[in-house]
Simulated assay, not measured.
Amino acid sequence: MIVDSHCHLNYGSMTEDMDGVMQRAREAGVGTMLAINARLSEYDEVLAIANAHDNVWCTVGSHPHEAEKEPGITAEQLIELAKPEKVVGIGESGLDYFYEHAPRDLQKANFLAHIAASRETGLPLVVHARDADEDTAVIMKEEMDRGAYPAVIHCFTASRALAEACLDMGCYISISGIVTFKSATDLQETVKIIPRDRLLIETDAPYLAPVPKRGKPNEPSYVKYTAEFLSHLLDWDYDDLARTTTDNFFTLFSKTRRP
């Protein structure tokens, strides 16, 4: 069994072929999926998908791109929305300075609210970090010093320095299909420093399909290609990698149940 630790099941063609998506995931050995909430306005539909499938769990959160459209999010608001059984994480939230779709001050304010909710609930924080390494590390460390919270940096593409800073804070790091791209040599080297008991894998579907599916809409079944690539890159038996990253997922997202 393998886990897709980060996918957006309410986006793209997956909503039109959910039965097919689930069947192909089963055939690929994907036993569990985490459906990520990227807009609070979509929370109900993400939760409904999780409720409809025994092997799907979900999060509650607002992506940094949405900080201007969904400003002023509070920890109390997130804590209340995290009460249902199927909600097992907070996020995704964080900082994205690549696109600048939202002002940085609003991104930071929402990020702080998500961190506070994670600390209060004990549910893992799912962090988005793009071109914002320094601010991400500073905010997370300052907040960690105020009170520990569990966290995973999803779809990691940042610097080795950020990886080391997050690992020092006890965070997990999740690797997407980007690692399979020929241009991802720096990321491929950074992956080698991640302790095996702190590694997760994901699709970020419907985005970022791995080689050999690059350019096509992504889906949870494709997480096997990322796992296969990492198995070769790290000289790690595929079955052991699948078992370890699955164990890591259930350790971090402790509100879940194994199938």
Rank of each mutant, 00 (worst) to 15 (best):
L187P: 09
H154Q: 05
E189V: 01
S174T: 14
I175S: 12
T185N: 13
G122F: 09
K141D: 04
Y207S: 01
Y149A: 00
G147K: 01
V127L: 07
T121N: 11
V191K: 06
Y207K: 02
E120M: 08
K192C: 06
A129Y: 13
A151Q: 11
S159R: 04
C166F: 14
C155V: 09
C171T: 03
S174C: 15
P150Y: 14
D133H: 10
A205Q: 05
L167K: 10
V191H: 05
H154S: 08
G215T: 12
P124C: 04
Y149L: 04
L167T: 06
K192P: 09
A184V: 09
E202Y: 05
R146Q: 06
P195D: 05
I139V: 12
V211M: 10
R198I: 06
I193F: 09
Q188T: 11
T203M: 09
R196D: 09
T136W: 02
V138P: 02
G215W: 07
T121Q: 04
A132P: 15
E164V: 05
A158H: 10
A163I: 00
T121K: 04
K182V: 04
V127T: 07
L162Y: 10
G170W: 03
Y207W: 06
R119F: 07
M169F: 01
D197W: 02
R198S: 13
R130A: 06
E143C: 07
A161V: 06
R214C: 10
L208K: 01
K141M: 02
R146P: 00
M169A: 06
D197S: 11
D135Q: 13
A184W: 07
A161Y: 03
E189K: 12
L125I: 09
G177I: 11
I173E: 06
M169Q: 08
L200M: 11
I201S: 00
E134P: 04
V138M: 03
A132L: 14
T136G: 13
Y172R: 02
R119L: 11
I153K: 02
D168K: 13
D168E: 14
D197H: 12
R130W: 06
D131Q: 14
C166L: 07
L200V: 12
R146N: 07
C171L: 09
A151S: 14
H128A: 08
M169N: 08
P210A: 08
D135E: 15
P195G: 02
P195H: 08
T157C: 12
S159P: 05
L200C: 09
D133W: 10
I178N: 13
V138Y: 06
L123N: 13
T203K: 10
C171H: 14
T185K: 15
G147D: 04
R130K: 12
G215D: 11
V179P: 15
I194F: 14
A184R: 07
L167C: 07
D133C: 10
V138C: 06
A165V: 00
E189C: 01
E189L: 03
T157D: 15
R198C: 12
A161K: 10
T136E: 14
S174I: 12
Y172A: 04
S176W: 06
S174H: 14
R196C: 03
S174K: 13
Y172K: 07
I175L: 12
R119S: 10
L162I: 01
A184S: 13
D186C: 00
S183N: 02
D131A: 15
